[in-house]
Design a protein around this nucleic acid. Structure first.
Lengths: 224, 224
DNA sequence: ACCTGAACACCGTTCAAGT
DNA sequence: ACCTGAACACCGTTCAAGT
């Protein structure tokens, strides 16, 4: 009837569960099998435990999804505060794209999560700080972030929806589309696929950089 | 043993099922209950039929989701071909945003669909045509569309993730965030919420227009 | 040709019971 | 305090059977 057994310890081979371990397992699972693979039973199995045990550390599946989004924000590199806001915004966007492509489920999860975690708050606070230090007003900084993040998330969303990941696949898919498509019904689509997307050297990283530069060059601290 | 009964007709009170009717029912259901509400059983119930009957008209749930995305593209207004590409791109983006806000599940569905339907193909072909007529090269038009659509989808994605839909809710949420937040940990976030987001007249349509103009003014036919 | 009952292999979550 | 067996109310999909 002792409340606390002093001599008894958890077996060292099995680390105790925690919210963090549950979220980490969920992220790994999502990377491997997609968001649909993130089930309570699958997460539990990966941790050597039953599904119901997870409810001792998270409130439910939604809580896990919130934690996963926050874990993604934690992976994004943030430049140290600096007055070179343009370089900092460029590097942050490039790092964000890399992280979002590494976790393809993340961008689709964003629009359903409304409880930002500590890493998310830290991220946004740091970005605001960089722009404020660079001379942006409060409203100007908010506007700049909204424009940059819109471009970033939308670009990755489109990049992820492409039905290919390699050059060879692109060629194959492009050929299939052009073959199936009534050329006279969609003349401009056929043109862009044959003349543009299939040309050697077409590269989404270049496209991302060009669009990002276009936006960053149009933003100025005194704009608002 | 007649193959075709000539005199027998379906009761006029119950229209025959079709892929289109299934997709339409799914769109209505998603608008009302969110994407998670789009189950085979719920769609069937709405059509006065059992879930298994749907498989006679669609190949499965994925086929329905593809159809839903195509139905959304069909709702977007497309300007007639014109040389005023900038006005046409503005109006298309504004119409797209309206449609995507009307169907909040659509933007999140985009990144998982890889089989574009006829309305989607028609839409992209028309947009390409407007830019080509406006003097853009094939590569320039593809680039312009990628930048504009990235901004559009990313903006709507962020707009939809906001945990409020009215002015009063915004005030309430903002107050809650500021109250819960350790002010010294996130000074810039507290600043932007109190000084910017809560100020009267803050309007997402204005923000959208400003960012869109910034991008459209930076795009030029001879840029590529 | 189209619809369906029953079944299969899953879900998230609750709850009382164990230790 | 933490874990779990059984159960509940769901999923998408298959298949053989009906008409």
């Amino acid at each position: 009837m002792r409340e606390r057994g002093t001599g008894r310890r958890a077996s060292p081979t099995r680390a105790p569960l925690s919210r963090e371990r549950v979220v980490t397992a969920a992220v790994t699972l999502a990377d491997e099998k997609g968001e649909a693979g993130v089930t309570m039973r699958a997460i539990a199995a990966r941790l050597g435990v039953e599904a119901m045990s997870l409810y001792n550390h998270v409130t439910g599946r939604d809580d896990i999804l919130d934690g996963m989004v926050d874990a993604v924000f934690d992976e994004i590199d943030l430049a140290a505060p600096t007055t070179d806001w343009k370089a900092a915004m460029h590097d942050r966007a490039a790092s964000s794209r890399t992280v979002l492509l590494r976790h393809p489920w993340a961008v689709g999860l964003m629009d359903s999560r409304s409880r930002p975690g500590p890493a998310t708050l830290r991220h946004h606070d740091a970005v605001l700080g960089i722009l404020r230090a660079g001379g942006f007003s409060v409203a100007g900084a908010a506007h700049a972030i909204l424009v940059i993040d819109s471009y970033l998330y939308g670009f990755v969303l489109q990049e992820l929806s492409l039905p290919f990941t390699s050059r060879a696949e692109l060629d194959e898919v492009a050929e299939g589309i052009v073959r199936d498509l009534p050329a006279d019904a969609y003349p401009h689509l056929v043109e862009v696929i044959t003349e543009h997307a299939r040309r050697p050297g077409y590269d989404y990283t270049d496209e991302f950089e060009r669009g990002l530069s276009l936006i960053l060059d149009a933003l100025r601290p005194d704009e608002v």
